[in-house]
Amino acid sequence: MMAARRLTLALTTLGGLLLLTAAAALFVGSAPVSPRAVLSVLGGEKREGIEAVVVLSLRLPRIAVALLAGGTLAVAGVAFQALTRNPLADPAILGVASGAAFGVVVGQLFGLGSDLVAAVGLSAFAFAGAMVAAGAVYAIAATDGRLPIQTLLLTGVIVGLFFSAAITVVISLLDFNRLGGVIHWLLGNLAPVSAGSLAVFAALAALGVWLVLGRARELNLLALGEESALQLGVDAERLKRRIFLGASLLTSSVVAFAGPIGFVGLIVPHLLRGLLGPDNRLLVPAALLGGGVFLLLADTLARTIVAPAELSVGVITAFCGAPFFVYLLRMRYRGVP
């Protein structure tokens, strides 16, 4: 089949790009590690010393988090866009990321103990926050079962602002010593997490991707409008609930482990749609790989652009994403009064 062949081609290309980017990122960083040293660590000749620590305990986990978070965010973007039938939808713009972030800071108030408990607990708080925010946006913006774009975007911004304010309240209750860490996390950063946390993150992301990818064909039909989808045999209500759940899970898992990183879910699906077309059966797997490549590039830039200091990756994605959003908005309304 045509579509299947194109999927194979897209995944092979993006997979190659991903491996290449990941390999390159191993050699880049603020610590002075020579390429030869990186190779000897990777080759297993060097297992101790500063170089081994930098490559194996700093760079490698960070690359893994970047790939996972980027792919997850891009799939969340595709899912929200299909759900709202709107290419401008994104977890951050819809306020869902802020809801998840609020959940995380509330979770941190409780100071969840050991690492793995904290990972699971914070994810649960983030998921609850994301569901509340997404539910609020949907309930406020829906008129007669439809989601008009202006209302949806405005509602997302308002709900996002509300949760940002709520986050500020919780932060002022936090212990002063923990303030810096929380703020660093709020800007979105891919600090290495432990292997256990990474496993929890990956499991949640995999569940979310499965929820979305398993209904990719039905999501295509949703683009016709709900009534037409129903008349073509799609159980639209069940589909929407499943995608809503999946997209919230994807968003909240990233927020819990890497903070609210904006615009990845907007930029990556848009670029891929230009290359592959709107078929969600191609778009979802391609976004999983493409989002990873994008966020890894952004993070590598964030680590090196002001070296030896480093920027939060969320800053880079916002600097790319905000003008991109304006461009999309202008394109969409070009010629429309």
Binding site: A4, R217, A223, G233, G277
Partner: peptide, 30 residues
């Protein structure tokens, strides 16, 4: 129906293939 264009830029063939959905549910590709 009286239906506007799809929310995303599907081709005519992709649109027509959507009519095959009820005949092969549970399959990822047509």
């Amino acid at each position: 129906p009286q239906e506007g264009p799809p929310a995303f830029s599907y081709t005519v063939e992709q649109l027509v293939l959507m009519g095959r959905y009820p005949h092969a549910p549970g399959r990822f590709f047509e």
